[in-house]
Design a protein around this nucleic acid. Sequence first.
DNA 1: CCGAACATGTAACCTGTTACATGATTAC
DNA 2: GTAATCATGTAACAGGTTACATGTTCGG
Lengths: 172, 172
Amino acid sequence: MGKRKSELTELEGAAMTVLRQLGACTPYQVRKAFKDSPSAEWSGSAGAVYPALRRLKAAGLLVAKPVKDARRSVLYSLSTAGADALDAWLTDVARAAGIGIDPFRTRAPLWGGLPSARAGAFKRALIRTLRAERAAIREQLAAPDAPDRDAIELCLALQETRLKWLGAKRKK
Amino acid sequence: MGKRKSELTELEGAAMTVLRQLGACTPYQVRKAFKDSPSAEWSGSAGAVYPALRRLKAAGLLVAKPVKDARRSVLYSLSTAGADALDAWLTDVARAAGIGIDPFRTRAPLWGGLPSARAGAFKRALIRTLRAERAAIREQLAAPDAPDRDAIELCLALQETRLKWLGAKRKK
DNA sequence: CCGAACATGTAACCTGTTACATGATTAC
DNA sequence: GTAATCATGTAACAGGTTACATGTTCGG
């Protein structure tokens, strides 16, 4: 069965999440899921996904089922151990509550100190972009068949928090 | 002056942010700033910080001033080109509006599908942790001399958004 | 049948982490 | 003087990214 991995990376967890949601997938389908995702944190680069799935297979967390087509595709799905590992990853409180890497928050402290000529145009552009993303997210929520409704709402809430913060800051 | 770097990494930008805020710093001081930061996204590992600062120096974005102590320390500060690069990094709309890597949001879509025996205890632990962090952040805000007040408020707003989302989800 | 998009990979590179090594300073 | 801590690094490693290479399927 291969030795147990002590911990999953964020990408590995995300990939296994896709497998749980969609059932057995080829690596390409996982990549596609990453790319199509509204909240795309992962580029879904082949150089990350293919090795990651093989790694998980080697660790006994996935089972591979070869497809008999000319492309020699492989359908991966969660093994029992994989399902357990995914649950453990999902319920890792310390990591779930952690901050991650937020480009907005990394930059925010310094926006107040920008040369004012630059600051105005930048803030306008930023707000415009955030609003556009918010609109796109709302669009998705409008679809009656939207999957991951909760996740999309979370995404929306986060963008709105950013917008609200910018607004509050501006007023001061 | 060295050749121009096309783009700064998040850590490089964060390091230069520290230099702008504190003035000339040794690598160790930058590391300390990362570790002390309330919103610590970076471990401030020596293996990242020392090479990063040398990289930026080589690119002409920092100036190095040797200190005449037995430790052969070096004080780094922003060059003119470095200040420009930092401004460009700060005002990179696409990146600032991007989502980054958010462990909470990566996991959130699947919490609904957890075995219910596990889900309850996990959610309680998660809420407890988030509340503890919120309290810690409020603590910082209570200090009258708190620097980066805006940034801390943003941190607080984000944690509250998470808590609110969890609460809303629970009700449904 | 031929070009475009699909699908599977690989190799070189970059950056950050952990763990270690080493010397300087401070507290006692 | 010695132990703890401060401070500066380095080496091995890990995990992603980009760019490339290659074969397959499909639309015209």
